[in-house]
């Protein structure tokens, strides 16, 4: 008896069809693959490579091993400070924005008349360009001429120096973040309107009060949206740059590009020096592009850690369906 190891004759057309299928898939995926290559894979791989080099954008990079990472961990006087500042925003500003957006969304769902007007009012601030919004806040909180201290003065309160005081600079930026939470609110509003009404009616008949309805009906229904906004919120906050840069320059009184703004970044006393601001300062003002790339890689790792943490914890907080 002879055993034939060749494929059955039907396999050849099957392979041909599969190749054709793969070709079609590749063709259809082509634009995406190209985008992935140019805008994600190349920059990511290049950033990781440059993080191990001495690089200033203008001359060829030279390999320095782990020197950039060593400098970040043990020698840079501002790396940990900038990381602490950014984590402060992640811990306080991101939840503040989510909670305020959820509460406003919840209120707007209940409003029967004039809802669209209130929706517009709460959403509009998120459309303000970050630079313009920050300038407006800096004027409001100006210790000398701002409306906030003028109002406090009427009640006999000597207002603080706000953006010029290391203790108050970050809370002012937090207020700015909460003021512009309209983008998150709209997402919550859409999700809240999607919650089936009959669930509330059934719960009402069973005697559930408003808090219980929120805890056992609203939150579980919102869980995927909450998870999405939390993850994107963390990533956005880790990249917090524009508002901190503008606020510090305005507080330092040197809001011009011509005169250079490097020395004012993080003013006062490094209180607003966020991680991306320090990365920018080191990369583009002090020409340590290799080091800035190392900071970028570390930021990517931190973002991944936060995302994994949120995905894992979301099941505990929001039920097993949340992370799916």
């Amino acid at each position: 008896m002879t055993l034939t190891l060749t494929s059955p004759p039907v396999a050849a057309p099957l392979r041909k069809r599969r190749r054709r299928q793969h070709g079609t898939v590749l063709l259809l995926m082509g634009p995406w693959i190209l985008g992935f290559l140019i805008f994600f894979a190349y920059p990511l791989v290049a950033t990781v490579w440059y993080s191990f080099t001495r690089f200033d954008l203008l001359s060829p990079p030279s390999f320095v091993g782990l020197r950039n990472y060593r400098y970040f961990l043990f020698e840079d006087p501002n790396s940990w400070k900038s990381l602490r500042n950014t984590l402060w925003f992640v811990i306080f500003m991101m939840p503040a924005r989510l909670i305020s957006a959820l509460l406003i969304g919840q209120l707007l769902v209940k409003i029967r008349r004039g809802g669209s007007i209130y929706r517009t009012i709460f959403f509009l601030p998120s459309l303000a360009p970050p630079v313009a919004a920050t300038i407006a806040f800096a004027f409001l909180f100006n210790p000398g001429t701002g409306a906030v201290n003028a109002l406090l003065g009427r009640f006999g309160i000597d207002g603080p120096l706000w953006l010029s005081d290391p203790a108050y600079a970050k809370p002012v930026l937090l207020a700015l973040g909460v003021w512009g939470m309209g983008d998150v609110m709209v997402i919550f509003l859409a999700a809240l309107l999607d919650v089936p009404n009959d669930q509330y009616e059934a719960a009402g008949l069973d005697g559930a009060n408003a808090v219980q309805q929120f805890r056992y009906i609203t939150l579980p229904n919102l869980s995927p949206v909450l998870l999405f906004t939390a993850i994107t919120g963390v990533i956005q906050t880790l990249q917090y740059f524009t508002q901190a840069a503008v606020a510090s320059s305005l507080a330092a009184g040197v809001a011009t590009t011509g005169g250079g703004s490097a020395s004012s970044l993080g003013y006062p006393d490094g209180a607003t020096l966020t991680y991306p601001l320090w990365l920018y300062q080191m990369g583009f003002k002090n020409f340590y592009l290799g080091y800035a790339c190392a900071m970028g890689v570390i930021l990517l790792v931190i973002s991944l850690v936060f995302t994994i943490f949120l995905l894992r914890r979301s099941a505990a907080f929001l039920g097993p369906d949340a992370a799916r």
């Binding site: 210790p143 000398g144 120096l161 010029s164 507080a251 009184g253 809001a255 011009t256």
Partner: peptide
């Protein structure tokens, strides 16, 4: 002086 400095107008 810290307060005075914080209330100053923009340089340019």
């Amino acid at each position: 002086l810290q307060k005075f400095n914080a209330k100053k107008g923009e340089e340019f």
